[in-house]
């Protein structure tokens, strides 16, 4: 066996940065006010329509969109800013839903009191899988381990009957208690909760983006070795980003539970994690507006098309492939190209 080739030598990434992927991540120059305005407009529609609509279906759809918006916006922190493929996002979403539901069921906690321990559990797990895998440059170990972790969490949830109810899932009988005089228990209340979390997530993402931490993440995405030569602690920054990303996903999960009233290991499936990655790729990685565009396209478009769910996923898969191959900067990139002043114009 000793004569077998050691294929790893060929796996060292080429010294020259691969162009398509780099380009695809997009520049984050602060000049794109118009893009930001469009993003805010999209967000406003997303938030305003369900808040004023009387149809239960619209409110339901709005809540679903808002929760997926949180997933996309939070994943963008590790994947768009720091350039690391995190493929356990649906697993953290499910983990949040289950942890909170189990705490409420077994320890008689209120919905609100279940949030801090749920966030802490997500942070702890993210750190535990982030540390071993994020020490490696290049992101391949991290992609592979988060994918495996996502599947693992799903399988353990499905097999641990006593705690989770197994593959049949859990019926949830609780709803968030009123807080500060606001009734969060109603359909509209849960919508407000989801929309609120989306706004908080966006605020966190924006704050990170324009902070020293965010700049360090972008530097890491662009060139880990160069970043570390300039004094940036690459592993620690990536880990911090992954912990924040995962905690936000888990919090979205805690809202999903009372929203649907039923949770099952299905919600942690790998294809759901991939869908969120798809939203980012289609919307435009690394931009603040991209995740919102991506959510609207990924969740909204199929709802309008009204084709069977399976074919919707096929179409979305094809869109991912097409975007990666032909429009590497996503929808945000396309819009940016349309609105960007011509060469020589003022910047």
């Amino acid at each position: 066996m000793t004569d077998m080739p050691d294929l790893a030598t060929a796996s060292v990434p080429p010294a020259k940065a691969p162009t398509a992927w780099r380009g695809w991540l997009g520049s984050l120059a602060g000049r794109r006010t118009l893009l930001a305005v469009l993003g805010i407009a999209a967000l406003a529609v997303l938030l305003a329509v369900p808040a004023t609509a009387s149809s239960r279906y619209i409110v339901y759809l709005g809540t679903l969109l808002a929760l997926h918006g949180v997933l996309a916006v939070s994943l963008n922190i590790i994947m768009g800013f720091a350039g690391q493929f995190a493929l356990a996002h649906a697993a953290f979403y499910g983990l949040g839903a289950y942890t909170s539901a189990i705490l409420i069921r077994d320890f008689d906690l209120s919905f609100w009191a279940s949030l801090p321990p749920t966030a802490a559990a997500a942070a702890l797990l993210a750190a535990a899988i982030g540390y071993p895998s994020l020490r490696f440059t290049g992101g391949i170990h991290f992609a592979l381990i988060t994918f495996a972790f996502g599947e693992l969490i799903r399988l353990v949830t499905a097999n641990w009957h006593d705690l989770t109810g197994g593959p049949q899932g859990m019926q949830l009988g609780f709803s968030p208690e009123p807080l500060l005089g606001i009734d969060f228990g109603s359909t509209r209340g849960i919508y407000a909760l989801a929309a609120g979390l989306l706004v908080i997530s966006l605020a966190i993402a924006a704050a990170i983006r324009f902070s020293r931490f965010g700049r360090s993440l972008v530097a890491i995405r662009e060139d880990e070795v160069l970043a570390s030569s300039l004094g940036i602690n690459v592993t620690a920054n990536k880990m911090a980003a992954f912990v924040i990303t995962s905690v936000l996903a888990a919090l979205a999960g805690t809202i999903y539970g009372p929203f649907v009233g039923f949770i099952s290991p299905e919600m942690m499936s790998a294809s759901d994690s991939i869908s969120v990655v798809g939203m980012l790729i289609v919307g435009g990685l690394g931009t603040l507006a991209g995740p919102i565009f991506g959510t609207l396209i990924f969740m909204g478009l199929p709802e309008l098309l009204r084709v069977a769910k399976l074919y919707r996923l096929v179409i979305l898969g094809l869109i991912i492939i097409a975007v990666v191959l032909f429009a590497p900067k996503g929808v945000a990139g396309v819009i940016d190209r349309l609105i960007r002043p011509k060469r020589g114009g003022a910047r």
Binding site: V277, G278, L318, I319, I320, I321
Partner: peptide
């Protein structure tokens, strides 16, 4: 990697 993720869905 991204393309292969799309392929899974398809």
């Amino acid at each position: 990697l991204a393309v292969s993720l799309g392929l899974i869905m398809v």
